[in-house]
Design a binder for these strands. Sequence first.
DNA 1: CGTGTGTTTGGTAACGATAACAACCCGGCC
DNA 2: GGCCGGGTTGTTATCGTTACCAAACACACG
Lengths: 355, 355
Amino acid sequence: MTTSEPGDAKRPTRRSSNPTVHDVALEAGVSPMTVSRVLSGGKNVRLEVQERVARAVETLGYHRNENARSLRPGHRSGLVGVTITNIANPYYAEMLRGVEEIASAHGRRILVGNSNEDADLEKQLVADFIGRRVEGLIVVPSSAGDAAHLQLERLGGVPVVLASRAVGGVSADTVLIDDVEGARTATAALLAEGHRRVAYLGQRSVFTGRRRLEGFTVAHEALELTPDEELIRVGQQDVGSAERAMTELLDLADPPTAVFSANNRNTVGAIRAIVARRRATAGTGAGGGGDDIRVAGFDSFDFADIAPVRLSIVDHDAGDLGRRAAAMLFDRLDGGAQPVEPRVLELPVTLRDLF
Amino acid sequence: MTTSEPGDAKRPTRRSSNPTVHDVALEAGVSPMTVSRVLSGGKNVRLEVQERVARAVETLGYHRNENARSLRPGHRSGLVGVTITNIANPYYAEMLRGVEEIASAHGRRILVGNSNEDADLEKQLVADFIGRRVEGLIVVPSSAGDAAHLQLERLGGVPVVLASRAVGGVSADTVLIDDVEGARTATAALLAEGHRRVAYLGQRSVFTGRRRLEGFTVAHEALELTPDEELIRVGQQDVGSAERAMTELLDLADPPTAVFSANNRNTVGAIRAIVARRRATAGTGAGGGGDDIRVAGFDSFDFADIAPVRLSIVDHDAGDLGRRAAAMLFDRLDGGAQPVEPRVLELPVTLRDLF
DNA sequence: CGTGTGTTTGGTAACGATAACAACCCGGCC
DNA sequence: GGCCGGGTTGTTATCGTTACCAAACACACG
């Protein structure tokens, strides 16, 4: 386009839209093919031409259209879809960072969706991701609703890795936390200290909740004890409801002397309730009471170490969960021929005393 | 094409790859065009044909290729790019959720990248996002390095909204927390209580840190006071270093009677140092000392309300930050003709006394 | 029965990029 | 001079989808 003939009105100048290889080619006085060649390494292109093209790219602010590229056969989209039940949960945020880290190292970008524990929304997200030709999916499956949309054949052959939770009826690569063992160890520690009335705060409807309750029960059974049903509270979703549940427990005629909580929201709620009770009884001069309730909880959280109670935490690395899940996915994507059987990985946890 | 003639070997059956409109058309015995019509609403297509196509879609597990669709003129990619300096930071995670919420409501998906405070990485992310034809960008700019890549003309006209931090030399829509006012109010509250030696714990290299220090200073100047340089500590990145800095302050000949900290890590560190000192002096029977150090801090955190000191918090909503940034972006994308001037929004903060 | 109106359907081209092929240029060799 | 091989460049066709046009069809009305 050094000289602008009146005849070449084929492509009217469109300043607004993104420039294409064609525009760059005009600017550099070469063919689109040559531009393409320069952009993919410049093999077999004269140096002088390469420089001319580079200048044109710079001048026009050209960016290769990846969507168009991914259209060509054999080309990959470079995208991985991630659906999470709640991005704002620091635990999943940390996991997401792990996924991003590995994806980035493999030259992929991540598409993120929030399923909000809604299977329908999750289904839409997955369908949309497949429509965008993601190469793979990492899914924290929602606890509610059926999961038929995660069947391999429904995904058009796109590999999926389930993270944090398994799904009945779906056989796919899965990375889990060792929920049962974590809950068992923590509960066993409380029992070993002599506590015999240990409460449980958690969930039963969610996969991890069920497993953690199982660990709680197993620890009791190992000592031929049976947990008191009255001390088992399930269904608290947030800190507020957890605090109320703990307060109820403290109000019992025969209150617990220790509590195991199955996630960080419940732990924080329990600690709040204990501290509130401590302040109230301190005023009456009663002294003892809720003061020395022992707490053990699954998941770490910010500033757990300044909690004003004797606290142990079942710690696990969310970032590692994400990295492992992503690694599993890229193993299938970039690794050679794979075994077809899905693999299940259970990540270990550690019990930390924070006092 | 119900009967398969030997001659029609044009498109060999490819079970492995994703089916296309063409495949669906063959299956349903119609033309690709008709399939396309059915998929976009089915206007002017016989009901019987629509059902046939729907069945074929179901049978083959067809998903429209969004990348191919977005190629067509006038069509949008439905993507928004988000770069964050640290996804794992709960504050930005919450922000991300806000962005996702609004994006989702506008029928868009989000591409997420972690810049890790690295301007080069951020630049690559932005370039890649533009290559994928995102309709807009939401960027938490990295504090280090230059930001030429965020210039509007460099972005090929893709609108960008800066979140949480502004960037010198870049004029773009920006959503900020009202750092100056938050720090000013909190500091003013401490001064109003009669404190005259108020320490500052925070940062000076980061945008928000500078602004919060400014608010701290302004509050002093309003009362014709000058903050003691000795009481200003900057550069603490984590709880540990903040605790050490606070301990140093307590060891001064003329220690502060109150402290304003510019973020939650510093607040927690300060509280730790104060509590440690209190325990130490309690043993000596000294009584007073670090006992009644007053604390005010930016950012909330778990257990802020049960902290064992007189604490005020400058509270702000990260989710709101994300929602506002996204709303600003979609205002430009979906709203009609816009004013060209970039807008800057400063979100209000509230001072909460937690005692 | 012819014409007009409206519905349903299919062919063609284009979006942006690039493999595959073809064409060209150049120097070196017989 | 004519031919060959290597480097360089351009042309064509294709990826999956859909807007636009044209064709085919149904039906009503004069």
